[in-house]
Design a protein around this nucleic acid. Structure first.
Lengths: 87, 87
DNA sequence: ATATAATTTAGATAGTTGGCTAAATATCTA
DNA sequence: TAGATATTTAGCCAACTATCTAAATTATAT
């Protein structure tokens, strides 16, 4: 987990919105996609970026692939950011 | 102040290092530049990005232009981030 | 085995970013 | 006013990003 990758991932509004959704509940890629005006391949690319940044994890369940927050990393990032912003 | 702009600004290691330096003390552009292996125009571009994101402010003092943290925004960003990361 | 559904991968393209050099601007000093 | 110093602006280029369409992959159902 590098802060650069995390920040880069967080710099896109679509990706932040995805994370906000996953805070509420785990979701399949298609279900996430329905909330955006964007093709599924584009959405999939964003999901991959979030995965590369370790912010989310994914698991296949039948035909679907369920995405969820990677809570431990999410918390670690929060701590780093708070430290960074502490004057 | 938009979170996107802020995150985007923070996604670059050079810019984060500049902010870390400015946490310690206000500095002129050239002085900041001496800490990086990069031309001054490139550095100036990063400073401008930070300024556009409202993370720093600049003020001329004679021949120099002194950069400093925009503390109020810095604090506001911290709050937003904490809120974002609160599950 | 075939068709359907969910998702990802591949390949193309337009736009953005981060670096450079050269030129311009602003200030100070002689 | 001329020269030196500090910084920014302009213009260029290579690398990266976000999007798309089309094709491939994986799993379920008939």
């Amino acid at each position: 987990m590098t802060l650069s990758k995390t920040m880069q991932a967080l710099s896109d509004p679509t990706r932040r919105k995805i994370l906000e959704m996953l805070k509420k509940k785990d979701m399949a890629a298609g279900e996430i996609g329905r909330n955006f005006n964007m093709t599924l391949p584009s959405l999939s690319h964003h999901l991959n970026t979030l995965k590369q940044a370790d912010l989310v994890i994914s698991e296949r369940s039948g035909q679907e692939i369920i995405y969820s927050l990677n809570l431990s990393v999410f918390e670690e990032v929060a701590k780093n950011l708070i430290k960074f912003f502490k004057k």
